[in-house]
Design a protein around this nucleic acid. Structure first.
Lengths: 194, 194
DNA sequence: CCTCCGATGGCACTGAGTGTCAAACATGAC
DNA sequence: GTCATGTTTGACACTCAGTGCCATCGGAGG
């Protein structure tokens, strides 16, 4: 990595760290971008050269989870039921979260608790859901335009995931996210569907 | 209704109509509040005395659907399965939409097509989902804090509804929303669950 | 040493949303 | 009819998000 690139990364990290600290202590809506840039020591204009909005600072932690989910789904053995394959593919989410549980739960709580952040998160999830639906259609060898099943399987899977995530956060991570996800999938898809 | 109240309603209608016309012709994000108030002949400040935001002009059409859904759910016979009761309760949505299909489909298309509107819609839906989950818990006589089933039933129901709504809008209302909803519910809950 | 390019900051602007205030106006009492 | 009251309105000023533009600085390379 060149010097310029490292400098750029430095500023980015500085902004992210300052934002995280302020958002955690004051809440999302109460924190202004002016406060963040003051804490990071850059101009307001520079902030927008790194992030499109305050929301983006947090949402970027999601990275390329959507692509990873789709790839993981495509990699599941064809013998698995769609529901089972989707459940296993969700491991890319739970793995990411388990890699740093405290931070993940803090970010998740922040997101679930702020309407603006939640909106951006759901916007992303809508895309992921569509991608997963398309991949399930391929796996099931049906036309997604006429057969609702792949899309509904994806939609139900994400509904289960959202519920599991909420339980996980509300319970302060007492129980594993995977445990919640297993419970939820077993209920929505039944023993037979999985 | 007093004269003052009727005058207030008049201004409100004027704003709604002006907004609807502009939003339909220019799109949601492209239309500014200044354009709306200019078309309605009131000041910008007055707009905000009637609506909290541009989004609210559209979102208010949803009215008290959440409360109505909950009431309808509570009114379903106890003998029905939770899924069946939820499906029948969704009639408050389909009835509202069928009361004026062209307008409903236009509004739905506008909402599904605009990130800001979609966000506000989903925010509302989250509340409805929670309410429906609570009502289902009562109906199922279980504690929603420990038993995921009522919440998941509501979540899956809304997932089915969202998918059905999208199909309905994408198909330009060619097929009844109720038809889509029946198809979706049969898939996600199966013949047994209903 | 000079040139070029990327990063930065400053400035001005649009647009959303809010607080404040004074003028306008309908309502009700006398 | 007149006066007092409460509501609605427009105007202005302000904060905050987000964008375009331009001058400047500093490092990389010839």
């Amino acid at each position: 990595m060149t010097l310029a690139e490292r400098k750029r990364q430095l500023v980015r990290d500085e902004l992210t760290e300052a934002a995280l600290k302020l958002l955690a202590s004051q809440g999302f809506e109460e924190t202004t971008i002016d406060q963040i840039v003051a804490a990071a020591g850059v101009s307001r204009r520079t902030f927008f050269r790194y992030f499109r909005s305050k929301e983006d600072v947090i949402i970027e932690f999601l990275g390329h989870l959507g692509t990873k989910l789709r790839d993981a789904l495509a990699a599941r053995p064809a013998a698995e039921t769609p529901a089972r394959a989707l459940r296993e593919a969700f491991a890319v989410f739970t793995d990411t979260y388990h890699h740093n549980p405290e931070k993940s739960i803090r970010l998740a709580r922040l997101t679930l608790g702020s309407p603006a952040l939640m909106a951006r998160y759901l916007e992303r999830q809508t895309q992921w859901r569509a991608d997963a639906g398309a991949e399930l259609a391929r796996r099931m060898k049906v036309d997604p335009a006429t057969d609702l099943r792949p899309r509904l399987t994806a939609a139900v899977g994400f509904a289960a995931f959202d519920t599991a995530l909420t339980c996980w956060v509300d319970g302060d991570g007492d129980q594993d996210l995977n445990t919640w996800l297993d419970k939820a999938f077993r209920i929505v898809f039944g023993e037979t569907g999985l």
